[in-house]
């Protein structure tokens, strides 16, 4: 569930922040997902579990609003949910989105640069 949510989140970030509707994130985004999961495994050990918990919260919170967890939503709904958290008054939500956005954006553009 954690991995699936990270995958959905990375695809959303790539779609919104890197492609902006000019293409489909898949399947190039798959390597971004792998990078982000690998970075999660590298982060300081005391932060890993909280990030997993927060990711699952992020996923399941969608059930209240959209009737399905984040990873089951279509891309537009997912982009909306990411925006909600990005603009949240709660700092941990903004930090959460920023963490994944930073990693996915950096991963995506590094991959693109390597390809060229």
């Amino acid at each position: 569930m954690f991995r699936d949510t990270v995958s959905a989140l990375c695809h959303t970030v790539v779609e919104e922040r890197c492609l902006a509707g000019i293409g489909s994130a898949a399947p190039e985004a798959n390597s971004v997902v792998q990078f982000v999961l690998a970075q999660h495994a590298r982060m300081p050990d005391f932060l890993r579990a909280p990030v997993v918990v927060l990711t699952l919260m992020f996923d399941l919170q969608c059930i209240l609003k959209h009737g399905a967890p984040f990873r089951r939503l279509d891309c537009d709904q997912r982009i909306q949910h990411v925006r909600d958290w990005r603009l949240s008054r709660l700092g941990f939500r903004r930090d959460f989105v920023r963490l994944y956005e930073s990693l996915a954006v950096l991963g995506w553009h590094s991959m693109k640069e390597r390809c060229q």
Partner: peptide, 8 residues
Amino acid sequence: PFLALGLI
């Protein structure tokens, strides 16, 4: 890549 990150 760092520029993209800088615009986040």
